[in-house]
Amino acid sequence: MSSTPPRSWTDDDVQTATRKKPVPEGLWLQCPGCSAILFKRTLENSLSVCPECRHHYRISADDRIEQLCDPGTFVEFDSDVVGGDPLHFEDVKKYPDRLQAARKKTGTNEAVKTGTGFVKGRKVIFAVMDFRFLGGSMGSAVGEKIARATEAAAAEDLPLIVVSSSGGARMMESGLSLMQMAKTSAALARLDDVGGLFISVLTDPTTGGVTASFAMLGDFILAEPQALIGFAGPRVIKQTIRQDLPEGFQRSEFLQTRGFVDRVVDRKDLRSEISSIIDYAGK
């Protein structure tokens, strides 16, 4: 799995990308945002954004790379880097079994893809998370790949683009997952020390230890519309404070008004936003 498989919008992809409601088999699906009945092909042609209500569907790392990268320019690195099972973690299932199932489901080894690519002719380093892989959770391998990508960006003076989509740190590696927050943040400190550029793109959902480490450390922080972004999950907060959460709480627009996101950017504009920031930063 050292190169990116060609993009294919199979039924399976669409189904796993839309977790909110089960999507009926076939050519049509119902938008979880506005309940409109959409022709699948229409959705595919609109970057998996509902043309009616602009609901942004979750997409795989491969599709994200395909959307952001100049065609055929992405070269993956560290695709063979995987974690172990240092804790011999067992809940109702064994961790290696969960990993195996995730690999089978996604056709990828881990919850992040890293590599070099071009955005409108500008060379960058990408790290793109895949929510389908154990909820995009960060264990040792994800932390290692992001740290390596960050170190490569610093060494080669290339812009670092990280697209986050994650439920947070991976429980099955416990303390070692927690340490990945420190590891990735420390690597970003070094990138900052050499004047590097880091653009963090937050997509639905970005929560927990990923938000509380690299995702919130971008020199520029962009977010897709209506993405859930937060530290604690809404359910945990609701249980703690025992009251209803305000409308739009922890969504991209909420974070923008509170001062934690620079720009909420529609998926169709993401490429040009990224390339223009790179230009302004002179990279």
Partner: peptide
Amino acid sequence: FRRLGEVHELASGG
């Protein structure tokens, strides 16, 4: 902190 975590490189094709 950089060395914390357990990672392996899969054999090619793995």
